[in-house]
Simulated assay, not measured.
Amino acid sequence: MGIFDRLTGTRCPPEGVSPVPAQELRAALLGLNRAEEPYVVRYGGGERCDLLAEWRLTEPAWQQTFVRSEITHAVRIRMRLDPTAHELRALEEQWELSRVGTPTRLQVTSQYTRGPSRTVSRQWTIGRGADGRLEATETFRFDSARMREPLRDLVLQLGWTWRGLVLGKL
């Protein structure tokens, strides 16, 4: 693995792991969908990719979480399967978000970036502990790696290479 592979987040599966067929990998990735996760994996359709993972920004149950936690970026991962090379090519895209209207909703602004990135948002509550000292308690944590890492780990576990992209075609 070269320096560029490290910069793009490319990872190879462990030695001795046999790659599964593309259909099995696709089904396993779609199987990551759970109501308690802040992202969804779906077929790429009109996005010029095989699969797409994206934040649940527009779903009512999650929209308030994103607004209240003051998340400022949306991330999606477009994925293309290459069955001959047993490689999943992944392109991460990120947009800046702003809050508009009453009630507040999220709106995508014009800032756009490509390639692996990480967005972390935390909220803390400061109060007095039982001993009277000031304490900070983390009340909310949001990390964009919660989407990328399960996808990448599953791909590697099933014997495929995770190829991160920054430039070029998916």
Rank of each mutant, 00 (worst) to 15 (best):
Q111M: 10
Q111K: 14
Q111S: 14
Q111N: 14
Q111R: 15
Y112R: 15
Y112D: 01
Y112W: 15
Y112P: 02
Y112T: 05
Y112E: 06
T113I: 08
T113F: 04
T113H: 10
T113R: 14
T113S: 13
T113M: 07
T113Q: 13
R114E: 11
R114Q: 15
G115D: 02
G115K: 09
G115N: 08
P116I: 12
P116V: 07
S117Q: 13
R118C: 11
R118Q: 15
R118N: 09
R118V: 14
T119A: 11
T119P: 02
T119V: 14
V120H: 05
S121K: 12
S121Q: 08
R122Q: 14
R122P: 01
R122C: 11
Q123L: 06
Q123S: 12
Q123I: 06
Q123G: 10
Q123H: 14
W124N: 03
W124M: 06
W124T: 07
T125Y: 01
T125W: 01
T125G: 01
T125I: 02
T125K: 09
I126V: 12
I126P: 00
I126Q: 07
I126H: 10
G127K: 12
G127P: 00
G127V: 01
G127A: 10
R128Q: 02
R128W: 00
R128E: 02
R128V: 00
R128N: 00
R128I: 00
G129M: 06
A130Q: 12
A130K: 15
A130P: 11
A130W: 09
D131M: 05
D131A: 09
D131C: 03
D131F: 01
D131H: 12
G132M: 05
G132E: 03
G132I: 03
G132Q: 07
R133M: 09
R133A: 07
L134Y: 08
L134E: 11
L134T: 12
L134P: 09
L134K: 08
E135N: 03
E135R: 13
E135Q: 12
A136C: 11
A136K: 13
A136R: 13
A136G: 12
A136W: 04
T137M: 12
T137W: 12
T137Y: 07
T137S: 14
T137C: 13
E138Q: 15
E138G: 00
T139C: 10
T139D: 02
F140E: 06
F140N: 04
F140I: 02
F142Q: 06
F142M: 10
F142V: 03
F142W: 15
F142P: 04
F142H: 13
D143Q: 07
D143F: 04
D143I: 08
S144Q: 05
S144E: 03
A145P: 00
A145K: 10
R146Y: 00
R146E: 00
R146L: 00
R146M: 02
R146S: 01
M147L: 15
R148P: 00
R148Y: 08
R148K: 11
R148I: 05
E149W: 08
P150H: 09
P150D: 04
